[in-house]
């Protein structure tokens, strides 16, 4: 079984701050991690390989330092890492990104399943996974919480919905995006870490993908971020801790005085 996992390197979210002048993320000194949802995608990919054999190829698009995310994925058990890195990719929105990633899949050619995290913790769009499947014209199943069965060239999965879950059967190849309920990501092994240190990471540029120039990077991105800002924090509430009827009376007085 040939499994492709897409990951993204993101800033460790609890530490992110926005530069008030430029409205961009301050990335200096902030640690980069694999998008937490992608850790579940990696784990599920490795579990499929352990069950059915084959190999897991992990891909990411990003600056050269994103290579460390691929190495981490290899330390967990992925077999091969491919980095899509080119100045021409800079400024990609979700449309251009998913096009670029889909072109990389076309270059790989043979695959049975693509696994993505449900969304990235920095952009939170949840659009790239579905975008890739659209560009490739293959079925997509989002918010997968369990792979029940893979056989006869199809997959049966459970997909989370707000009310419960759906059981869906899709032919392979297909793309799934996974939620954190699907598994518990493993801790790397020493042998995996040593292998990842030595692993050769392939880098593909725009030219290697035979991507159309005006569909990648800033040029291929119909959306752009106009402004990023931190919403003002809500003022503290007021607590009345007297007897119930007294507190209610007090509250009503205040509401009246503010003409609410």
């Amino acid at each position: 079984m040939n499994i492709i996992v897409f990951i993204k390197q993101v800033p460790e979210t609890t530490q992110v701050q926005i530069d008030p002048k430029t409205n961009t993320l301050i990335r200096e000194g902030v640690q980069s991690i694999i998008n937490p949802f992608d850790m579940y995608a990696i784990e599920e990919g490795i579990r499929l390989k352990e069950k059915f054999g084959g190999k897991v190829t992990v891909l990411t698009m990003g600056p050269p330092q994103a290579e460390s995310a691929l190495r981490e994925a290899i330390s967990l058990g992925c077999d091969e890492g491919i980095l899509l890195s080119d100045r021409a990719f800079a400024g990609s929105d979700t449309l251009a990104t998913s096009y670029t990633l889909a072109m990389a899949v076309k270059k790989i050619k043979e695959f049975d399943i693509i696994i993505c995290g449900k969304q990235a913790s920095d952009g939170d769009t949840a659009q790239v996974g579905p975008g890739i499947s659209t560009h490739l014209d293959i079925p997509q199943i989002t918010y997968v919480k369990k792979i029940e069965e893979v056989k006869d060239n199809s997959a049966i999965v459970e997909r989370m919905t707000e009310e419960g879950f759906e059981v869906i059967k899709a032919p392979l190849p297909c793309l799934i995006t996974v939620v954190k309920e699907i598994n518990e990501p493993r801790i790397p092994s020493l042998k995996g870490m040593m292998r990842s240190k030595k692993a050769a990471i392939t880098t593909w540029k725009a030219i290697d993908l035979q991507a159309e120039e005006d569909r990648i990077g800033l040029k291929g991105s119909p959306t752009q971020v106009v402004k990023i800002f931190t919403p003002p924090s809500r003022p503290k509430g007021q607590i009345f801790d007297g007897a119930a009827d007294e507190s209610v009376a007090k509250l009503v007085d205040i509401l009246k005085s503010q003409l609410i």
């Binding site: 801790i187 092994s189 020493l190 042998k191």
Partner: peptide
């Protein structure tokens, strides 16, 4: 089990017996 899967029980065992 986690320590085992991380290869840590093999720290001082020779590589030819599966250790580190």
């Amino acid at each position: 089990k986690v320590i085992a899967q991380s290869d840590l029980f093999g720290l001082v065992i020779e590589e030819k017996y599966g250790g580190m």
